[in-house]
Amino acid sequence: MIYQFNFRDVFASIDMLLEGALLTLQLSAVTMAWGLAIGVAGALARSWGPPPVRLAATAYVEAIRNTPLLIQLFLVFFGLPSAGIRLDANTAAVVALSVNLGAYATEIIRAGVEAVHKSQIEAGLALGLSRLQVFRYVVLFPALKTIYPALASQFILLMLATSIVSQIAAAELFHMASILQSRTFRDFEVYIVAAAMYLAMALMFRALFALIHRLAFGR
């Protein structure tokens, strides 16, 4: 039997997929902002905090980095209600993704923080800045500059990983694709088109991050 490819049904409902792509971009952007914030705070805690804070930050990073995102998502969405915290699917998705990205971002930014030379920090302290001010004005910017490429590719991996939240029916591209699949029964065509859209978004993000790199750090 020769299979007849039929993309007509898929393209007839392309609006649905485009809407899904937009939701994915939105979800990714929100998560990236949270992940960056958590990452900076985590890096500060992990390399500059008092020992108990350091330990807590390390435990957070190791726990997240050594378990699958899918399980983290299930714990937030299905598990937290038994602790009295009930989140809807979209909120649970943002929480799980942010907590996940935050751990990776912490580790990446920490590497940048530790690459800043000790003499810079000492110079900052000698000028009478507080430790927090030194972190904010002396350490953070060069650190972010050093690790920018690693952070950017982690962000792109995150954007691709948002597809996983379709498993709790949070609204994004992959969820839309599975709705479309159940309507058209064009499994292969639907997922190929969805995959192509993810690829386009990944390339777009890469271009965007390169532009930001040029604008923020100059050359």
Binding site: M1, L160, I164, S166, F174, A194, A195, A196, Y198, A202
Partner: peptide
Amino acid sequence: AIQGTPLLAQLFVFFFGFAIFG
């Protein structure tokens, strides 16, 4: 192509892709 698409999409494409070739 592989690094720019979600693993979940790859899984589904292969899962359904084999079926369409019989």
